[in-house]
Design a protein around this nucleic acid. Structure first.
Lengths: 341, 341
DNA sequence: ATTTTTTTTGTAAGCGGTTACATTTTTTGT
DNA sequence: ACAAAAAATGTAACCGCTTACAAAAAAAAT
C-alpha cells in the first residue's frame, strides 16, 4: 500500500495525496476529505524512507551518551527524548562507552543515518586540549551539534550547561563558613563539568583568602557500581592519617561512600563531619541520614537544550552558550544551623 | 556526494560501487581497492534513506519503554542498545509513559519508521485481560515483537523473562524458614511481572502449608521518587497496629523505604526485622545496613532477547518463550544464619 | 460573456541507493 | 588456440515519496 494506490482509490494524483498528508492548504476541502477517508480506511502510513529521501530529513535526532544506564545520563536521555518527541522528532540513541574510538564511530553512524542534529549528552566526548575533537567539528559542518554540560566553540555547536563551578563553589563555601577547615574533595572524572566542579572547589578557598590544600583533592577510579570501594577508599585515607571534617563530591555516589565510612565508624554526621554530594539523585534519599547535594537542574538544561535545538533547526538564531545555576539542597548531612536556601 | 559521483571517479558503474560498499565478494580485488580509496578520499557515506528505500530496512529497531529514567529500565535499554549495536543495528528509543494512548501512538510512530523489529522493555504495555492489546498484535503481523518481562501469545511475539514468581517465592520462603511469621509484601505496580511476583509470595505460604494473610499485602502508589513517602507509608502501617517481622518488596526502593522506617524507629535489622528487595539495584548498597535483594538477571535477559531478535530477523526459528531464574542476593538485611547461596 | 486572476490538480523528474538481468572479461578445459 | 564456464562489470528499472512546473477548473473582474 503506497501513495500511488491511495491516489488511484481516491481518483486523484499522488501529488494531491501528498499535499493532504502534509497538511498543505491548497487542497479543496471535499478532495481532502475523500483522500483522508481512503487513507483511514486502508490504514495507510507513508513510507518514512521515501519521505526521507525526498526531504533529506526524517525528523530524527541522534543522541550520544557514554552510558545510558548511568543514573544522571539516563535522566538526561529521558528528558531530551520526551521534549523532542513533543516536537515531532524521533531519537536514535547510541551509547558510546568511554573510549574515543567508539565515540567517533557512533558519530559516523549517526551521520550516515542523516539525522537532523546530534546531541552529545555528557562531556566525556570533549578533549580539553581540543586535540581530538576534529570529528565533532566535522560533523558540525553539516548538522547542528548540541552539547550538554560541555563547551566547544563553533558556529554550529550549541552549549547548554549548569555553572558547575559556581555551584560547587557555593557548596564548598558553605562548609568553610561552617568552620570546616579540612574539606575532602572526591571526584572520579576529568570531563569538562568535572573539571569545572574542581575549579569551583578551589575558588571557594581563594575567595575566602585561604589556601587550598591539594592533599585533600582525591581521585577515585570507578563508577557508582563500585560504591563499596568508595567507602574503603575513604576509610583508607582516614587510616593513613588524613583528617577531614567536611566532604564535597563531584557525584552523589562518592558522597554516599563517604557517608558509609562515617556511619560505620560511628562518626556523627553532620556534627563532626559534613558531606555534600552532587546531582541530587535518588541516592540522596536512600541513605540515613539523607544526603545534602547540589541540584544542577538537569530537567531545565534538557528542555532548554531541545528548545534551542528545534529553533536552530528551523533556522532561527539561537544563543550559542546557555548557562544555568545549580542549587544547593540541604538535607541531613550538612549543618542546617545557617540559612538553608 | 552520492554513489554516482563515486562511480564516475572510480571509472566503474554504480552497481560495482554498491557491491563494494556492501562487501560482496564478486568484485575484482583491484577494483575494490580503487573504489574503497575513492570512497575514503571523498569521505563518502551512503545515504541511509535511499538504502532503506531499496531494501525496505534501515537496520533499525524500535525500543519502547515507559520511562527510560527508571533505573531498571535504563539498564535494560543500555544492555539492549549495546547488544544491538554490536550486531549492526540502530535503535530508535521512545518513552511512552504509563498511559495506554501514548503507548499506542509510540508504536504507530515506530511502525511508520519501518523499524525491523519492536522491543517492549517492561510489561506495562500489556493488558492482563488481553482486552486492549490489539495494536500489539497488529504490529506483530508485520514485524517481530520482543517482550521483556511480559507474556503474550502470537507466532511473531517472543517473550523473554525472569521467573519472578519463583524468585519471589524463594525470597519469601527464606523468611518463613527463618521463623518470620508476619511478612509484609509491598508492591507498586500491576504489570505482568509485578503480578507474577505477588503470586510467588502467595505460593510460598501455600507451599509451607500456611495461610497467606491478605492484610499484609500492601499497594503503594508511587515511584522511586517518592522514597520518603514509602517510609511514611510503612510507619503508618506500623502505627495502625500491623505487626511484621519481615518485608519483601517488588522493587528495591520499597524495601529501602521500609528499611528507613526501621532505622528511624531503632528496630534491629535483621534481628527483629528482615527485609528483602527486588532488582538488586544500586540502591541496595547505598543503605546501611545494605539491602538483600533478588537479582533478576537483567543483563542475561537483555542479551538473550537481542540474540533471539537477531535470529528471528534472519529467518531462523527461535524459541517463543525464554525464562531465566532469579537469584537471591543476601546482604545485611536478611539473617545469614542459614546458608546463603 | 469574456478575460484575468486565483485556486486546485496533474505530470513527471528527481532523491540515492539496490539488484535482476545482460554483457563483457577472465579463467579453465581440451 | 578455441570453446565453454566462471567471474566481473554494466544497464536500467525500481523502491515511494516530494515538488517544480504545467494545466485545468473555479472565482473575480471587466
Amino acid at each position: 500500500m503506497n501513495i500511488y494506490d491511495i491516489s488511484k482509490l481516491a481518483g486523484v494524483s499522488t501529488a494531491t495525496v501528498s499535499r493532504v498528508i502534509n497538511g498543505f492548504d491548497n487542497v479543496k476541502p471535499a478532495t481532502r476529505e475523500k483522500v483522508l477517508s481512503i487513507i483511514a480506511s486502508q490504514g495507510y502510513t507513508p513510507n518514512a524512507f521515501a519521505r526521507g529521501l525526498g526531504l533529506n530529513s526524517m525528523k530524527t535526532i541522534g543522541i550520544m551518551c557514554a552510558d545510558s544506564s548511568d543514573m544522571y545520563l539516563a535522566k538526561a536521555v529521558y528528558y531530551i527524548e520526551g521534549a523532542l518527541r513533543e516536537n515531532g522528532y524521533h531519537c536514535i540513541l547510541t551509547c558510546t562507552g568511554y573510549e574515543r574510538k567508539s565515540q567517533r564511530e557512533s558519530m559516523e553512524m549517526l551521520m550516515s543515518q542523516h539525522v537532523d542534529c546530534i546531541i552529545l549528552a555528557g562531556s566525556i566526548f570533549i578533549d580539553k586540549d581540543n586535540s581530538n575533537n576534529k570529528y565533532i567539528y566535522k560533523a558540525a559542518d553539516s548538522v547542528p551539534i548540541m552539547l550538554l554540560n560541555a563547551n566547544l566553540d563553533h558556529k554550529n555547536i550549541y552549549c547548554i550547561s549548569c555553572d558547575d563551578s559556581a555551584a560547587m563553589e557555593k557548596a564548598t563555601e558553605f562548609l568553610i563558613d561552617n568552620k570546616r577547615n579540612n574539606i575532602l574533595y572526591l571526584y572520579n572524572s576529568n570531563s569538562y563539568s568535572a573539571t569545572r566542579k574542581l575549579s569551583g572547589y578551589r575558588h571557594a578557598f581563594e575567595k575566602k583568602g585561604l589556601k587550598c590544600n591539594e592533599d585533600y583533592i582525591r581521585y577515585f577510579n570507578g563508577t557508582s557500581k563500585d560504591l563499596e570501594k568508595v567507602c574503603g577508599f575513604v576509610t583508607e585515607l582516614a587510616d593513613k592519617g588524613l583528617k577531614f571534617n567536611g566532604v564535597v563530591a563531584s557525584e552523589d555516589f562518592l558522597a554516599v561512600g563517604a557517608l558509609k565510612y562515617a556511619v560505620r565508624k560511628g562518626i556523627k554526621v553532620p556534627k563532626d563531619l559534613e558531606i555534600i554530594g552532587y546531582n541530587n539523585s535518588v541516592l540522596t534519599v536512600c541513605t540515613e541520614p539523607e544526603l545534602s547535594s547540589v541540584d544542577n537542574q538537569l530537567e531545565t538544561l534538557c528542555t532548554n537544550l531541545v528548545r534551542i535545538c528545534i529553533g536552530a533547526l528551523s533556522g532561527e538564531s539561537m544563543p550559542q552558550k546557555t548557562v544555568f545555576n545549580g542549587e544547593l539542597i540541604h538535607r541531613s548531612t550538612s549543618a542546617s544551623s545557617r540559612k538553608t536556601k
